[in-house]
Write a protein that binds this DNA or RNA. Structure first.
Lengths: 180, 180, 180, 180
DNA sequence: GAGTAATCGAGACGGTACGTCGTGTCTTGAT
DNA sequence: ATCAAGACACGACGTACCGTCTCGATTACTC
């Protein structure tokens, strides 16, 4: 089951999250923005965090396509660049960043849904690479993705630095070829 | 200038942050815990976020020593393992995670103080490695650290997965040697 | 017309009224207690007050028999004592008191149904007394009953005082004989 | 101690009580009407009932002077007539009636404060009468007042009947002289 | 050691939002 | 075609903190 105006509620949720951050996101605000009564929101989601979790899961805002460029390196660069765009340009940036902050101390937001589950989709990139012989079968795709995605987050969000034009390529090169 | 009970205030701040997360951290709670009046806190810090920022800067909770094992690989593994411990064991874990969540949408917390500035200290590891000939001079230490630290955050915090015994070593190997 | 479970609805209404007072009496509670849907109650009675009014009219909880002791004094003492019991012992006490509170600011409850209309039944006491010559024909029965019943209410409910063993007799004596 | 705007708060409370009855009296409404924040009201009174109780105690709306006409009969008639006015003319009427309804099922409103405590003031009427020899010393003033006041309430409020021009005099006569 | 700032405790206050309960209306799906 | 089930908008509840604001009462530094 779902509330009649779920669409509007989720839209309002993400909009307010992006606009005012997790703290500024209030159930009351969502209710007003989405033209729904506060009670209705509480009927369906037990807390602000749960509401946000549902909105994020449903949102396609954070999706990006899995590329198929013909080479592992190309695929990974494309993936990482897409993630870079996501993390630096509004409204994705604000939502992603706020969602992280929220997920980090609200287990019910279950960060896995936004970060970990993506791996399932990214995995095909690695399978293709193994089939092409670009990668030993023993390689751990999750490790590779954690290194790359982690670097993007660290650079763009924690350090608050702009992602240079070639950052994605350099990161991918480091992981594929090693730095030493 | 500083309030007379700054120590107690900061201690209470970090304690409450670790105990109840960023949301559960309230100025009122800090005041009560530290035996100070709410007014006093507002006299010195304009907001909860600013208070937390000050407390974190002062705290040594997040510090770890820069290792010197004789090899780059050893140093990096030690660094990453230390970060792993920090991110997975209380109270550091809770503080670090909460601090991230807070910093992420409160510019005044200036994430650089907790994440970026560490690089200055880590840099010596790379300088020693270059001197030893383990690393080409052209290597970008920040990229390496972003990859490694990012992977730890992603794995431990975003994915909420335990860090296996050898995760640090594997991550360092991937970055130093490449995966392909 | 009447809803199929009218009995249960009225029973639940009076039960909840006695248990939790007028404020604590809710349509929702009545619905649940009587195993009926809220909608059903609203279909038949426009408001909580109207429902209560209907329940009270139907209830025999507040009835008492008109005594016939052979003397006016005896009849009146018996009447007043019965009223005293009604006003001081549960569940009648709670229902009567709550009904008063409700009636007082809900015209639709029509207090006359519970208080005034009784006069019709009490009147025979006075008719018998006139016939016996105990009372001049000009005496106003309503005045007498208002004095006596009013004293009981004032003492038991407004003042919240226990009704002494002889209170009924004293009140009747005062009205019949005068105090001066 | 007392809130800074106690006057306004009490005035608003009684005004709203008279206007909308006990049910329609809301803390939120009082707050708005009196230009005070809801929190402030809850800071000082734990509930609507307690607020109303305080407002009623402070209110002079329900006061009337104790007459001194020279005779017991005259004093009582004056007293009862004043009560009659109180119970039939706004705003006293609405307040008194609503207060009764409220007091009846809210012990903290302590009906004694509005009904019983008045006896202390009325007692002088009886003392003077005893001194004048109009009344045996053994007469119970409370019984007399309960009979008279009770009759007024019953007639005016419970029965909802108008109080005739001579009702007070008749009631006093009945009690002083007896009806038989 | 007194005088004068700075600092503090106490706590009332206007606010915003919380999460809950009950109201009375309206829609819908099963019978 | 009726009616239970229950979603809904609404208003109020009582609570928690927010950040601001007087007030006096302590400090503690300076002369």
């Amino acid at each position: 089951m779902a509330p009649r105006k779920q669409r509007e509620i989720f839209a309002a949720t993400l909009r307010l999250l992006a606009d005012k951050g997790y703290d500024g996101l209030t159930v009351e605000g969502v209710a007003e923005t989405s033209g729904v009564n506060k009670t209705t929101i509480y009927r369906w989601w037990p807390s602000k965090a749960a509401l946000l979790a549902a909105a994020l899961v449903e949102a396609d805002m954070l999706d990006f396509d899995v590329p198929d460029t013909g080479s592992l390196r190309g695929d990974l660069v494309a993936l990482v660049e897409a993630l870079g765009v996501l993390l630096t340009e509004p409204p994705g940036r604000d939502v992603a960043v706020a969602a992280l902050g929220a997920a980090v101390h609200h287990p019910e937001i279950d960060a896995r849904r936004f970060f970990a589950d993506r791996l399932a989709r990214e995995r095909v990139v690695f399978e293709r690479a193994v089939r092409r012989g670009e990668l030993p079968e023993s390689t751990d795709p999750m490790l590779v993705m954690d290194l790359l995605a982690g670097a993007m987050w660290t650079r763009a969000v924690f350090r608050g630095l702009p992602l240079g034009k070639d950052f994605a390529a350099e990161a991918v090169a480091a992981v594929l070829d090693g730095v030493s």
